[in-house]
Simulated scan of single mutants.
Amino acid sequence: MTLESVTSDLLAPVAHGFFTRKGGASSGVFAGLNCGVGSSDQREAVMLNRARVAAAMAAPTDALLGMHQVHSADVAVVDGLPEDPDAPRPRADAMVTATPGVVLSVLTADCQPVLFADPEAGVIGAAHAGWRGTLDGVLEATVEAMLALGASRAGLRAVIGPTISQRAYEVGPDFFDDFMMQDPANGRFFAQGQGDRMQFDLPGLGLARLRAAGIDHCAWTRHCTYSDPERFYSYRRSTHAKEADYGRLISCIRL
């Protein structure tokens, strides 16, 4: 089956894709294109899925680079392919490069996958931005790392891919209080839910942080991972269904 990916004109002509779960070799709760090496899926299926993604990005499998994601604001700068493809992945939540042929990737299952490009400067980036990483500044850190490689704020574009939408993201009062303690203006990202529950707007927060960082050309693809089980994996949906594990979506960008 052919792979399916969501793309954005905002990142053109840079090769990129927010891949859905369609077209993969995994089965069971992972059915489809699970690219999470940290999942309990069969490793052979995951590696086959990753090879298919690399091929779709017109790159060899060893050019598909990822991270050990830890919900941080840390950024890894990539200046070429690793000499040892089996070397440990960097502990970070964003990657940037100005090296052609390198495929930067992030894994998500409700968190925001954010792809960045300055086509004129030849600099790209990819970030994994959950609520913690976004609040701690992973998007701003990615922008700064790209500027250090020669990108410009005026030339930068950023697109948030499939992520959990506000209508599906119910949180409790402690979560709300953490945001309000950092900045009372964060109240705009919450809507009243049932009882003491609130509905949190993660992509709204992401877009606001990007714009505050001087990135005028930014957008969300408006795909909700929770609400579309045929196309997307969702950690929260799997938790609600009491499933033992969940697949990970992959999002990629290449110069």
Score class of each variant (00 low, 15 high):
V143I: 15
L202W: 10
D174M: 04
Y233F: 15
T239Q: 14
R52H: 08
F19N: 09
A213C: 04
A58G: 05
L156K: 02
V6W: 08
G101Q: 06
R231W: 02
D196K: 13
V96F: 03
T108W: 05
R248A: 15
W131I: 05
H217G: 02
Q42C: 07
V70G: 02
M1W: 02
V70Q: 11
T20M: 13
L255Q: 14
V171I: 14
M47Q: 13
Y226T: 05
A168N: 14
D62I: 09
D9C: 02
E230P: 00
V106R: 01
R209V: 15
L147Q: 07
V123R: 07
I253P: 00
V138S: 02
L202A: 05
A55I: 04
M47A: 10
P60V: 08
I124W: 01
P229D: 12
L11Q: 01
W220A: 11
V123A: 09
A151F: 02
A54W: 10
P119E: 08
F176D: 02
L135C: 05
I164H: 03
V75I: 10
D84K: 13
Y235R: 12
T20C: 12
N186D: 00
T108F: 06
P184D: 13
L249N: 14
V75E: 06
L205E: 09
H217F: 04
E170Y: 06
Q112R: 01
M95W: 07
T163Q: 08
L81Q: 04
I215Q: 05
D245Y: 06
L107Q: 05
G206M: 12
L205H: 13
G137T: 02
L149D: 09
S40K: 15
Y233P: 03
I253L: 03
G193Q: 03
A63W: 04
D110H: 05
Q166N: 01
R50A: 05
V70D: 07
P100N: 10
S234R: 00
R248E: 13
F189S: 06
E83G: 15
G247M: 10
R188W: 03
H223V: 07
A129E: 13
G187P: 01
D201R: 10
F179L: 12
T163L: 00
F176R: 15
A87Y: 12
F30H: 12
G28A: 12
L104D: 00
F232Y: 13
F19K: 02
A213W: 06
P184N: 06
R21V: 06
R231H: 14
F189H: 15
V96A: 01
G17C: 13
V171W: 08
A15Q: 14
G28K: 11
R188D: 12
A76N: 10
T239H: 04
F200W: 08
A92M: 06
F175P: 11
T108S: 02
G17W: 09
L147M: 14
G137H: 01
G38M: 11
A208Y: 13
I164E: 05
A56V: 11
A148V: 08
R43N: 02
